[in-house]
Design a protein around this nucleic acid. Structure first.
Length: 283
DNA sequence: ATACGGTCCTGTTCGC
DNA sequence: TGCGAACAGGACCGTA
């Protein structure tokens, strides 16, 4: 599942391959891929055609390609989305959703997405920051990310820590996997009430979050070659570095206690019951 | 305003 | 063996 490190890996690859290129052709293969472009697929294509990509930017799990028109091509990979740089002659495959051709160069940009949770849209005048993601909080790599403000906001919430970590309007880029990894490193159970965390604990948690992201990014950064911008939704390349996610019944890498899996808002949470005692067991 | 469960989607895995 | 159920989950939306 692409979270911040995976999206950043894709952003770097896309930036390298499409910056400065002029979009010549746009083909929307599945309308759902542009469902949030309310003016429709034809308008989507018209706004892109002839525009020059000036870079690739990211906030949290969203990335966008600023265009010389002042608009931006906004993209979210969802659960299974990939952006691929491929030769036009490469086989389409069953999950090709959008294809962008350029006036020059031997490659095209493809949006491939099996589960169609991902999406693309053209944000009018969105080059600097698409209005559609104005509500998305800055992520920990943003120079303007305000740790103190995050800490204050989190601790005044009446919610649970994991839920807060996953709230993209509070802090962006964190998904289910890295939330569990961060909580394990912080030795805090995700069900802990947000107001029960001390400022020092929040500071430590942010440090662990950055460490986990850094480690994943270091791996992701080496995982795509020149013609394939990789987002691996199936057998993730970060599997090796996971300390707790997906390890139900296996020994905690810190203390050896069997990792527990529990239901959390229609998904799974993994934690060590000894290192991360559930809230009701915390003094 | 904040909190939170339901919903979308499809390939894979699981259980009877 | 076959087939339906469960599972994976990010962001949005309606409701309280």
């Amino acid at each position: 599942m692409p979270e911040l490190p995976e999206v950043e890996t894709v952003r770097r690859g896309v930036a390298e391959w499409v910056t400065g290129r002029e979009i010549a052709t746009v083909e929307v293969r599945h309308p759902r891929a542009v469902r949030r472009h309310l003016a429709g697929p034809v308008d989507f294509a018209e706004r892109l055609t002839g525009a020059i990509v000036t870079g690739a930017r990211r906030r949290g799990k969203f990335m966008w390609l600023p265009l010389d028109t002042g608009d931006a091509l906004l993209c979210h990979l969802g659960m299974s989305g990939q952006l691929l740089i491929q030769p036009p002659a490469a086989p389409d495959g069953p999950h090709l959703r959008v294809r962008l051709g350029f006036t020059e160069g031997d490659t095209e940009l493809r949006f491939v997405d099996q589960r169609t949770f991902g999406e693309m849209l053209v944000s009018v005048d969105g080059a600097e920051l698409p209005g559609q993601i104005a509500h998305i909080a800055r992520d920990v790599y943003d120079p303007l990310f305000d740790a103190a403000a995050f800490s204050a906001a989190l601790r005044t919430r009446r919610s649970e820590v994991k839920r807060a970590l996953l709230d993209q309007s509070l802090i962006s880029g964190v998904g289910n996997i890295y939330a569990d990894e961060t909580l394990w490193r912080t030795m805090v159970h995700g069900g802990r009430p947000t107001e029960s965390l001390t400022a020092d604990q929040v500071t430590a948690m942010l440090g662990h979050l950055r460490d986990v992201f850094d480690a994943a990014l270091a791996q992701g950064g080496t995982s795509f070659d020149s013609l394939y911008v990789k987002v691996n939704g199936e057998s993730g390349y970060f599997d090796r570095s996971l300390e707790v996610y997906g390890r139900e019944g296996l020994p905690c890498r810190r203390c050896g206690t069997a990792v527990v899996r529990e239901k959390f808002t229609n998904r799974s949470s993994f934690y060590c019951p000894r290192c991360q005692p559930p809230a009701h067991m915390t003094p």
